[in-house]
């Protein structure tokens, strides 16, 4: 049962990235990182006890959003969903990400919630998570003393709510690859009402050569403990002409990739019934068929 009162906690406000990394190094798992706070504060009101909360509020240079046609898109740890929605480059070059951001939660939450926070929440329902999983990319992790490593998005989600982030690491930036002229992507989701968490979401990114798909990345949410790729469906589409027949087979193959459950938002039966339909529609949308 939620409380109207947050329990006591120490708020840590590092003034520089280095200071933040030192705190993480010192405190290890004892500190919880606050970025947008749209999940964390709700969890704390519901009883999640965070004794020490480190806010990124003063780290101004983490809210970058930079596109370069050669190297791709860089999204800072504090970059909000609203920033993505306002970006013509994201809209043009990363339709799946833009579409997921545009309908994410509510306008108020989009002003605060961050893309990287959505990834690190480790929820199988994250809308931006689905888009990023389909687009591919890496999350840049920093540690004290100048340590850096990149985690491939495919390796980020370990299990429900658990990521590959080590407890002394701070995710500083998300990097998405540059698209080429044959890149097509789209995002779709099903919800109970428009402003809602997904009961199923799907994002696709295809490298097209005319009607033929050279390679494909499909991601689906709310059908497994983590956001997942759909390898069986991808295999059918890759190298094939993207037509009704291929899409029908891909939609069928989704069943092999998913393991949905009944929960508050929907049923396993329903998710199985619509997963293929929504994959098909997302591909059609990406390729401009629909």
């Amino acid at each position: 049962m939620s409380s109207r009162v947050l329990t006591d906690f120490d708020l840590l406000l590092p003034g520089s990235l280095e200071e933040a990394l030192e705190i993480l190094d010192r405190e290890r798992g004892a500190v919880t990182v606050l970025s947008g706070g749209t999940d964390l504060l709700v969890m704390m009101k519901a009883g999640f006890e965070a004794d020490k909360v480190m806010s990124l509020a003063l780290l101004g240079d983490l809210n970058r959003l930079e596109f370069d046609s050669a190297t791709g898109l860089r999204i800072g740890a504090r970059t909000t969903l609203a920033q993505l929605v306002d970006s013509p480059e994201v809209r043009q070059h990363y339709p799946a990400l833009w579409q997921s951001a545009r309908i994410f939660a509510t306008p108020q939450l989009r002003n605060t919630a961050t893309v990287v926070g959505n990834l690190l929440r480790g929820s199988p329902a994250g809308d931006c998570s689905a888009a990023v999983a389909a687009l591919g990319g890496t999350l840049v992790m920093a540690t004290a003393g100048g340590g850096r490593r990149e985690i491939d998005i495919d390796d980020l989600w370990v299990s429900y709510g658990v990521t590959a982030r080590a407890d002394n690491e701070l995710a500083v930036e998300l990097r998405l690859p540059a698209p080429d002229s044959g890149t097509a992507s789209a995002f779709k989701r099903l919800t109970r009402v428009n402003e809602d968490l997904a009961k199923l979401n799907v994002a696709v990114c295809l490298q097209m050569d005319g009607d033929t798909c050279k390679s494909a990345r499909f991601a689906m949410g709310c059908v497994a403990p983590t956001m997942i790729r759909l390898p069986a469906a991808e295999a059918i589409v890759q190298g094939a002409k993207v037509d009704d027949e291929t899409l029908a087979r891909a939609a069928e193959a989704v069943q092999q990739d998913i393991s949905p459950i009944d929960d508050k938002r929907s049923t396993a039966e329903y998710r199985r019934s619509v997963a293929g339909v929504y994959l098909k529609r997302a591909v059609q949308q990406a390729c401009g068929f629909a």
Binding site: R192, V193, N194, E195, D196, L197, K264, R265
Partner: peptide, 27 residues
């Protein structure tokens, strides 16, 4: 869309706006 759900123990499943869904303006 609207219904309060309970589990077999009689515990409410959706006693908040997170999981009890009313239609919003855009719906």
């Amino acid at each position: 869309t609207e219904e309060m759900y309970f589990d077999e123990r009689g515990f409410a499943i959706n006693n908040s706006f997170t999981d009890y869904k009313m239609l919003g303006a855009s719906d």
